[in-house]
């Protein structure tokens, strides 16, 4: 061993020996009690940890001096971030899995029991225009944006534990980058679609007594027969308000995430992220139900958003009051032009 090496070793040993010489004998209590009752003076490795934890719990933000132009970067430690991080890594994944997979399982079970709800008496020849071209356009802008937003959002939450092990680092990185860009930019057409739907459909979606009766009758899903409904039944009105209020909430919180720290600090950012994810998850569950009943769950329902024309028998069964209104409009004598 060289002289320099020997000197270094001796110096290290001396450094270790100094604290050992000042160390006090450990109290004759279990280790957990030692931490809580640790003396405030003298050397005790545990007491250092206890003080640090207490300090972190006492202070919302531990700040320091920085030379970066952004003063918010002076936050060096944010103790509350540990709660957010633990939630993000643990409970959020389980909640997401339970909501998404649970909803898919429920719909699968419902389909296995009930099957596709058929049009009473089969499809006829007569049809009725249910949604105009513009109504279908705004619906599909919102729906198509939503599908990609939901998939890319789920990837942000759970991609690391679901996709990454399957496709590997490189593919996951590329995919996640593109999905993140999509998430940011598709938020705008989605918000546009929600605003248009609010403006065009709100007058048909004001809750009334007919909706109460519709819900009391189980919406026609339980038992036989179809409760009367206007252009939108109680379930559709619920979906409308979920989309408008939930979509509005997602847009606001999404802007908060898109412009980090513009209006709040790191704690606020964490709250916004939790709220954004919670609303999104609730909407994913609701939209899975909406997609199911609008496609495989009910014969003739997709026509309303495909061609816009629905089977008259289907319309009479599910929206009897609306059909009466439309037929009354069609048979009402038109005012003669002024001479």
């Amino acid at each position: 061993m060289s002289k320099l090496g020997m000197l270094t070793r001796l110096a290290l040993l001396a450094m270790l020996a100094i604290p050992a010489a000042h160390a006090q004998p450990a109290p004759a209590t279990p280790p957990s009690s030692v931490r809580l009752d640790a003396p405030t003076t003298g050397f005790d490795p545990d007491s250092v940890e206890v003080h640090q934890t207490e300090e972190l719990d006492k202070n919302r933000l531990v700040t320091g001096s920085i030379t970066l132009p952004d003063s918010r970067a002076a936050t060096l430690i944010q103790p509350d971030g540990r709660i957010w991080r633990d939630y993000r890594r643990g409970p959020l994944l389980w909640i997401t899995a339970a909501v998404v997979l649970g909803m898919i399982a429920l719909l699968g079970l419902f389909y296995a029991i009930k099957g596709e709800i058929k049009i009473d008496g089969g499809r006829g020849i007569a049809t009725l225009l249910r949604f105009s071209a513009f109504e279908r356009f705004m619906h599909w802008v919102t729906a198509a944006s939503w599908c990609i937003l939901a998939i890319s959002g789920l990837n942000i939450v759970a991609g690391r534990v679901t996709l990454l092990p399957l496709i590997g680092n490189d593919a996951f990185s590329t995919l996640s980058t593109w999905l993140k860009y999509s998430h940011n930019f598709l938020a705008f057409p989605f918000t546009m679609g929600v605003i248009l739907m609010l403006l065009v459909w709100v007058r048909h979606n004001i809750p009334n007594k007919v909706d109460v009766a519709w819900f009391k009758a189980g919406g026609g899903f339980i038992g036989h027969g179809h409760p009367p409904a206007g252009k939108f039944n109680g379930g559709q009105k619920a979906v409308f308000w979920i989309v408008v209020l939930g979509g509005g909430g997602l847009a606001v919180t999404g802007l908060g995430l898109m412009f980090p720290f513009y209006v709040t600090n790191v704690f606020g950012m964490q709250i916004i992220q939790v709220v954004h994810g919670g609303i999104a998850l609730a909407m994913i569950a609701a939209m899975l139900g909406h997609i199911y009943i609008g496609s495989v769950g009910m014969e003739g329902a997709l026509d309303a958003m495909n061609s816009g024309d629905v089977d008259l028998g289907w319309a009479k069964a599910h929206h009897s009051l609306w059909v009466e209104e439309e037929l009354a409009k069609a048979t009402r004598p038109q005012p003669s032009p002024a001479e």
Binding site: A133, R136, F137, M138, H139, W140, V141, A144, S145, L186, P189, N306, G308
Partner: peptide
Amino acid sequence: MRMFLVAVLAM
């Protein structure tokens, strides 16, 4: 279907 494609384009 046509309105769906128009909507995707607008999106």
